[in-house]
Design a binder for these strands. Structure first.
Lengths: 394, 394
DNA sequence: GGAAATAGTTTGACGTACACCCATACTTAG
DNA sequence: CTAAGTATGGGTGTACGTCAAACTATTTCC
């Protein structure tokens, strides 16, 4: 079955000439996403290569239908021959994109600009059986795919799972234990008749943010998911970081030697101190109402001394993990996703203060933002994967 | 001034044809280091490419003097035309290699096989002035370089410092504060008349281990230095990992929320719990003699209940950081360097037990070894850098 | 002596970036 | 209105890579 080609790496083998063509084509199309409609000269300037090097690549992409020339546009300078902006052509179809989470599934069609169309959702109870989840996902995907007025390049699925790389059986899925052993992905690929690509949800966030989101201009950043668990997709030099095909499990770094036991068997994992579970337990301990379903935003709204205290500790716990991440992998731009975002400006201020206090020593301060797109970024990321695959094969 | 070309990465620019040639040449020579003298066919098999693809590369390298053909050797199979093993030629000279640490400097000549020749050391007091250190380093380097019977490709320097990338002034150097502001590197380059390459000591360990050391066959591993501080060089896909040219500072991840303050301004950094300082303070607390200079090996030798307890805690503290590293960057082979190694088999057993206990959840257990080469690996790593540079330029 | 096996070489095809020159289309100065 | 200036796009030839396949060389085995 197909594997995501979004990263590449070899050490013992030889590099071939064709690989550089594929890499440059993808890079060029990504530059186009970043810049919007842009001329050959624009692209050449961005890549710092002569215009003549861009032209043949563009010609090939136009011939294959990946690009089209738009009407001559008036650039900033009125002098000289007007530039002919390039944009995605008919061959770059839309993608069908799915995001599975604990209590439901989102599905949408995503176009080449990262615009989301026909977004639909199906909810299911958090204790739903595998069969219920599977049928919900399948019918939703078939509906969206069936209604698409555009040709679809493929289907992308983002979920918080670990799966068998060969037959796509779910090996583990902490947020949705019922899915373990499920062959959902296999059936989904067959049902829709489209190429299917799977991706971990945190990694999908990073991909979506880099291609269509708030990290379009960043080669190095980290997309962090903070909700009932903690995960991250690490973008390094424009490539999604992984070692031997496996992604890091950042939620399970120990930040408190004597902390509470974690489901992973260790104690004091970041996840036990900065995810929703900790926040709600602390809320309960402090006697705050509705602690069972409290979100960071609720704590902010509460604004009692006890709640303020809780919020500050929460921010500190998140900050510690982020700074650790900055120190161990060297990324220092963080884009946060998940329920944390509900904390809004007050929580963000606290976070930044704690991060600042913990990085007096280092030369480069980490920066942190709450994602506007939030979970939509995962849909975008899932949509990018078939797109990249199509371009690479061309 | 020259910069280490041992890693490469681009995202917005285009890949060129020559780059793949350079990359393949370096890869081929590194394969030769791994295999020892090997024929074109051997190299082709390793790289999984047709023999015809190797031949022209080898021909070019022979013409440039980087390789020579040895006498026909009897391979495992007696049939067929005997293979002609290849080995490094006269153009691949030896390197002069330096390692600066808190109390002295090592210098040696390193050949193309990673053999160390003419190893010399100059000690200086730990409170030595910059002038004293500089003259010791300069005279040692001049001695070794002057005595070399072989042509030298360049000079490599490994040290625990951060330096200005433009003029090589030392910006910070925790183990040797006197060096801050020093222009030692500048003068060293001028004095010897050789190309000089600088590298962080932990990163040099990783490079040395991969080219000539115990990690010759590993594309993914982590060389960890555990002595008065903690640092690591991370090898990912055969390339030294760095983000935007800066390496991670793994010693400063927080593993204990309520821990002791660290010089970096945070509290409970790994370095405060797993470096020599912690061990000695605890030894003092437990009333062990000679705690000021105690090494892990001394604690092992002591073998009182209190000492055993201390050793176990030490192993646990190291293990926590290693497992964190495994979780955050995904590397799970650790090669340990520094004074830890004196702990020998007993400490290693404890380490492995703690690591095992903390990774019940994950699919792949991290493995940990004490390096036989230990600090010599840094000398080897520093020697590799001029070598790679010479080959890439060819 | 001939067949089989292994190693190394040669050739042509293909793909890629790049340097260079020329045509095109628009603005500006006279 | 004309000529010069300027930026864009296209075309050509060159250099440099791998690859596939056929070819040669050398040894062992029967």
């Amino acid at each position: 079955m197909t594997a995501s080609g979004i990263e590449r790496g070899l050490s013992t083998g030889l590099l071939t000439v064709s690989q550089i063509g594929a890499s440059n084509r993808v890079g060029l199309l990504h530059s186009l996403v970043r810049l919007g409609p842009a001329s050959r000269s624009d692209l050449a300037r961005l890549a710092k290569v002569p215009r003549g090097s861009i032209a043949p690549i563009v010609t090939g992409l136009i011939e294959d239908g990946f690009l089209v020339e738009l009407e001559p546009a008036n650039g900033p300078s009125k002098m000289g021959k007007p530039s002919r902006p390039l944009w995605f052509g008919p061959r770059v179809g839309h993608s069908c994109s799915l995001r599975v989470e604990a209590t439901g599934v989102d599905c949408a069609r995503v176009d080449q600009r990262g615009q989301v169309h026909d977004l639909r959702r199906a909810d299911f109870p958090s204790d739903a059986s595998a069969a219920v989840i599977e049928s919900a996902v399948l019918s939703l995907a078939e509906t969206v795919a069936g209604r698409s007025p555009e040709p679809l390049t493929g289907l992308g699925l983002a979920w918080p799972a670990v799966w068998d790389p060969v037959d796509w059986t779910v090996l583990s899925c902490t947020p949705i234990p019922a899915l373990v052993g499920s062959g959902l992905a296999r059936r989904l690929g067959q049902a829709c008749g489209l190429d299917l690509f799977l991706e971990d949800d945190a990694r999908a966030l990073a991909i979506g943010q880099r291609w269509f989101g708030e990290a379009r201009d960043l080669d190095n950043f980290s997309a962090v998911q903070i909700s009932t668990g903690i995960g991250a997709g690490l973008m390094v030099d424009g490539k999604l970081f992984s070692v031997e095909g496996r992604s890091p499990e950042v939620g399970h770094m120990v930040v408190d030697l004597d902390g509470a036991p974690c489901r992973c068997g260790r104690s004091g994992c970041w996840e036990t101190l900065a995810a929703l579970g900790w926040l709600r337990q602390e809320a309960r301990r402090l006697g705050l109402p509705q602690w069972e379903t409290a979100l960071p935003g609720d704590i902010v709204a509460w604004s009692s001394p006890a709640a303020d205290q809780l919020l500050d500790s929460y921010a500190r716990n998140i900050a510690i993990g982020l700074v650790n991440l900055a120190n161990t992998v060297g990324l220092h731009r963080f884009l946060l996703h998940g329920e944390v975002v509900s904390g809004g400006e007050p929580l963000l201020r606290l976070l930044r203060r704690h991060i600042g206090a913990q990085t007096t020593w280092s030369e480069t301060k980490p920066t942190v933002e709450f994602s506007e797109l939030n979970q939509t970024a995962a849909l975008l990321g899932a949509a990018v994967i078939p797109l990249v695959h199509t371009i690479e094969r061309a």
